[in-house]
Each structure stands twice: as C-alpha cells, then as structure tokens.
Amino acid sequence: MHLRRARPEDYEAIGAMTVAAYQPQLTDASSSYAEHLANAEARDRQAELWVAVGSDDHEVLGTVTICREGSPWREVAAADEGEFRMLAVAPQAQGQGVGEALVRHVVDRFREEGATAVVMSTNAHGTAPAQRLYQRLGFVRCPERDWSPMPGVELIVYRLDLA
C-alpha cells in the first residue's frame, strides 16, 4: 500500500468505496449524504483528496479529504487548525492500518504547514473502531464543538494538538 494524490481516473472508484464504507452509518436522515460522499471530483477540486492504493497503484483501499482554510469542505476548524473529512477505508481493507496511515499523513502535512491542531467530525453513532483510532493517535473529544448539520444527524468533534 502507498498514499498519493487522487487522480481523475480514481474518482469513480473513490466515490463508490466511500459510499460503501459509510453505508452502515447512513440513516434516513443522512441518506442524501451518499451523493456528497460519492462526489470525489468535487472534493479533489475544492479541497485535497488523497488515496491509499494497493501495490498495483489502482486498487483503492482508502481515502481522506484534507480541508485547508478557504475550502468549502471545512466545517469545524479554526483559522490556525487543519481539518480532514470523509476518512473512508474499503470494507475489505478495514483493520489493516489503512485508516491509520491516512490520518498520520494528514497530521504530518498539517504539522509541516505549521497548524496548531487538526480537527475532524465523526458521526456520534459512528463506528467504534474509527473513534478508537482517533483516540489512539492522540485526538481528544471536544464536546463543546459538537454539532448537527441536519435534524437526526449528530456529529462529534475530535482535536489533536500539534503544539
């Protein structure tokens, strides 16, 4: 496995994999979110889309969207913080370190750029393995920043201090 920027030829596979990874979390209230998840091209155009691929450089194992200041994909970051969204790992690759590699990559990028912290939101009823990953990597809950983008969808915020 290696990480690289997404390419246009990856968009369809990234979109499908992201929807598949999020499918267990999608509720009636958030089902329209699947279209948002599938739009890898927009994420790459308006933010920075990274992909973890297999040794053949084509099999999409995971993805993450890096949201810098000014990106319409930013939701909870302050001006001096980095943010990432839509961390997704292909169902068949879960538990193999793909998500961790992607999060570490995001953290390293923002550390190099001088951000004071990295923040992200996750579904309050999301997967326990993802929340354990964030905690293991040093992210801490910021309940004062929790929010709801729509009725029936509760998001919790994690933050990693880089100072």
Rank of each mutant, 00 (worst) to 15 (best):
M1V: 11
L3P: 06
P8I: 01
P8V: 04
Y11V: 07
E12F: 07
A13G: 00
A13K: 04
A16W: 03
M17Q: 12
V19K: 00
V19D: 01
V19L: 03
P24D: 05
T27Y: 07
T27M: 01
D28L: 12
S32M: 06
E35V: 08
H36C: 01
H36P: 02
L37S: 07
A40F: 00
A40D: 02
A40R: 02
A42I: 03
D44N: 14
W50R: 05
V53M: 04
G54N: 08
S55E: 15
D56N: 14
D56E: 11
D57F: 09
V60Y: 00
G62M: 06
G62K: 02
T63P: 08
T63M: 11
V64K: 04
V64P: 03
V64T: 10
C67R: 04
E69N: 15
G70T: 09
S71W: 10
S71T: 13
E75D: 08
V76N: 07
A77D: 00
A78Y: 10
A78T: 06
E81D: 03
E81N: 00
E81Y: 12
E81R: 06
E81S: 05
G82S: 12
G82L: 05
E83K: 06
E83F: 05
E83D: 10
F84I: 06
M86C: 10
L87M: 12
L87Q: 08
A90W: 00
A90Q: 03
A93E: 01
A93H: 02
Q94K: 11
G97M: 11
G97D: 07
G97F: 10
G99D: 11
E100Q: 15
L102C: 03
R104Y: 13
R104E: 15
H105Y: 15
H105N: 06
V106D: 02
V106Q: 05
V106W: 06
V107G: 01
V107A: 02
R109D: 10
R109S: 10
R109Q: 13
F110V: 06
F110N: 02
E112A: 15
E113Q: 14
G114L: 05
A115I: 00
T116S: 15
A117L: 04
V118E: 00
S121C: 09
N123P: 04
H125L: 12
H125N: 13
H125R: 12
T127R: 14
R132P: 02
L133M: 05
Y134P: 09
Y134A: 07
Q135S: 12
G138I: 00
G138K: 01
V140N: 11
V140P: 07
V140G: 10
V140D: 14
C142Y: 07
C142P: 07
C142M: 13
C142R: 15
P143I: 08
E144T: 10
E144I: 06
D146F: 05
W147N: 09
G152K: 00
G152T: 02
I156S: 03
I156G: 07
V157W: 08
L160G: 09
L162P: 07
L162M: 06
A163I: 08
